[in-house]
Design a protein around this nucleic acid. Structure first.
Lengths: 113, 113
DNA sequence: CAGTATCCCTCGGGATACTG
DNA sequence: CAGTATCCCGAGGGATACTG
């Protein structure tokens, strides 16, 4: 019986972790915020997200792309230019981020008092 | 003007990061879930949260306590026993976790299809 | 039991140089 | 410009032994 409940909880855990994985880490949010402000070239993003290395930016964008949150568009100018933008689906993160913001904001009020 | 917007975003970022910091990492959620199931002694928690070391459990619980999410109660039996439980405030995480679960669940449906 | 202290190793990620 | 490959270091965290 208690075992049954624990199993249920573990099943609950996975989707929550999935959501967290997408948002947590040093760079995810800053990148997502930058993308919320508009479409962006790779270099632009690197400038906007202070301190991020090319390697990390590349990796994080790939992650977001795999999760269908970001769309990568290549223009065959020379040299090539690439644009990243949030997908329609990616924008559904906004609600979630707002919830996090609300909780985080009142938490600040509770802690720094 | 664009600068103004960026500043605003950075201010938005901090509370979101605060909320994420409390939930992300390898052990936070499993511990919180265990605590949702009831009050727990240190050893009990270590058994329930598979694979966690004493050092980590200790550190994470201290974090949660500092954030007023968990209450630590010492009973002067011999040897001492200690109980950890979610505070009333800690339980406000439930709503947030539910939101993360909802997003994560539908994300799984979109990705693993 | 409920932790703390120490040792030790992995590996995430920075810096740099390179390619198409 | 938009990345990839390589090298390298330090912090995070595991294992173990110890204490009140």
């Amino acid at each position: 019986m208690a075992e049954k409940i624990k199993e249920e909880c573990n099943k609950l855990l996975l989707p929550v972790s999935d959501a967290l994985d997408i948002l947590s880490g040093k760079w995810k949010l800053p990148i997502i915020f930058a993308l919320f402000l508009g479409n962006h070239r790779f270099r632009e993003l690197q400038r906007e997200v202070k301190g991020i290395s090319g390697k990390m930016l590349s990796k994080e964008l790939k992650d977001l792309e795999i999760n269908q949150l970001v769309k990568r568009t290549v223009f065959d100018t020379s040299p090539v230019t690439v644009e990243y933008s949030l997908t329609e689906y990616g924008r559904t993160l906004e609600k979630l981020i707002t919830e996090l913001h609300n909780w985080g904001q009142q938490h600040r009020n509770i802690i720094f008092r």
